[in-house]
Simulated assay, not measured.
Amino acid sequence: MSLAPWLDACPIVAILRGVRPEEVEPIAAALLAEGLNILEVPLNSPNPLESIRRLHGAFGERALIGAGTVTTEDEVAAITRAGAKLMVTPHADPALVLAARARGLIACPGFFTPSEAFSLLAAGADALKLFPAEAASPAVLRALLAVLPKGTAVLPVGGVGAETIPAWKAVGAAGFGVGSSLYKPGDSAEAVTAKARALRLSLGAA
């Protein structure tokens, strides 16, 4: 399993922080209708494993279902059982990358420094999450990509939205994790549709 085909189809990871199980399917359906097919449920959301189970059951063939804010190996096991295929962490922990890869998950761990990036890649990370991106800049990403192995997929996450995506894309970001600019707790499917369209326009894909 690879992240690359999903990013090629649409490089936005929809971070549904705070989503509730009873609303996750209509929100996901709205995102998929707009071409956003990488869906992440952070584990600090209400009953996240149930949301992941519902997403897997309803959309597992059409979407890449992920879990975010993963911080322990027990959580890696739990998200796998729930049907997640993508693990996202907020921090640089090679042990979690190894645990995810051992279970067949795509691993996209968080990092902020070159040292962290290289240690995660050595553990087998499929992609890297530059977090918090608002504390860095596109210039920082350009410098990182100059020294990381060619083809390393780096996704800025944190403060990323329609206004900032073009600058990150211009320096080589492989994708973008988008949270509050796309979904906030309580948003309707219609509101998410409008935000998703704005994000696609920012990519140059109406």
Rank of each mutant, 00 (worst) to 15 (best):
Y183R: 01
S119E: 14
E22F: 07
L96C: 04
S2H: 15
I65F: 10
S51P: 12
L148A: 08
V24H: 09
K85R: 15
G159F: 00
G158E: 00
T164N: 04
P185N: 13
E75Y: 13
E61K: 14
L155Y: 02
M1Y: 10
E22K: 07
A100D: 03
S2N: 13
L130E: 00
A196V: 13
G68W: 04
C108W: 01
P11Q: 09
A173N: 04
R17K: 12
I52W: 09
K129S: 05
V13D: 00
G110K: 04
L7K: 14
L55Q: 12
E75L: 12
T89G: 03
R101N: 14
A4S: 07
E73G: 06
L43W: 07
F111G: 01
P11A: 05
A139L: 11
A135S: 15
R54M: 10
V154E: 12
L49C: 09
G110W: 00
P156V: 03
A135E: 08
R200D: 03
G151A: 10
A196T: 14
G110P: 02
N44E: 07
E34D: 13
G177C: 08
A33Y: 00
G68R: 00
G179Y: 04
K169W: 00
A100Y: 05
V178M: 04
P114C: 04
K85S: 14
E40R: 03
F176P: 09
K129F: 01
E25M: 03
T71N: 10
P26G: 09
A133P: 08
T69E: 02
A9G: 03
A174G: 09
L144Y: 15
A100R: 09
L148H: 12
V171K: 02
G179H: 04
I52A: 09
G179A: 14
G35H: 02
L130N: 01
L201Q: 15
A33K: 13
A84V: 09
V171I: 11
V24P: 11
L55G: 12
A84Q: 12
P114R: 11
G104Y: 04
L145Q: 10
V154I: 13
V88N: 11
W6S: 08
A63N: 15
V192Q: 02
A123E: 08
R17F: 02
P21Y: 07
A162L: 10
F59A: 13
G18Q: 03
T72R: 08
S202V: 11
E190K: 15
F131N: 00
V70C: 12
R200N: 13
S180Y: 05
A206T: 14
P109W: 02
L120G: 06
I165K: 00
K169L: 08
A139I: 02
R54W: 04
D126K: 12
L121T: 05
L148M: 10
A63C: 13
A123P: 05
I65E: 08
V171W: 00
W168M: 08
C10H: 15
